[in-house]
Amino acid sequence: MRKMLSFRPERFVVPVLILVGWELFSRSGALPPALLPAPSTVVVAWADWVFGIDGNTQNYTGHWIGDAASSAWRVAAGFALAALVGIMLGVAIGWSRFVEVTIEPTLQMLRPIPPVSWIPLAIIWFGIADKPAIFLVFLGAFFPVLLNTIHGVKTVDRNLIRAGAMAGADQRRLLRHIVLPAAMPSIFAGLRIAIGSAWMLTVTAEMVAVKSGVGYVLWDSYYFLRYDIVIAAMASIGLLGYLSDLGIRLVMARVLHWQRGTTLQGEG
Rank of each mutant, 00 (worst) to 15 (best):
S6Y: 08
P15V: 00
L17D: 10
I18S: 01
L19N: 10
E23F: 14
R27T: 03
S28Y: 13
S28G: 12
A30F: 08
P33I: 04
V44I: 11
D48I: 04
D48H: 01
V50K: 06
I53C: 09
G62N: 04
G66E: 11
W73D: 11
L89Q: 15
G90K: 14
I93C: 12
W95E: 10
F98W: 15
E100F: 02
I103C: 06
E104T: 11
L107S: 04
I113R: 09
P115I: 07
P115R: 14
F126H: 01
G127S: 05
D130I: 08
D130H: 07
K131M: 15
A133Y: 07
A141Y: 06
P144W: 05
L146N: 00
L146S: 00
L147R: 01
H151T: 01
R162L: 05
G168E: 05
D170F: 07
R176S: 08
L180M: 06
M184I: 09
R192L: 07
G196Q: 12
S197N: 08
L201Q: 15
V210Q: 14
G213S: 11
G215R: 09
Y223W: 13
Y227K: 15
M234D: 00
S236T: 14
G238C: 01
L239R: 02
L240A: 09
Y242F: 15
D245F: 01
G247P: 11
I248T: 04
V251Q: 08
R260T: 13
L264D: 10
G268F: 10
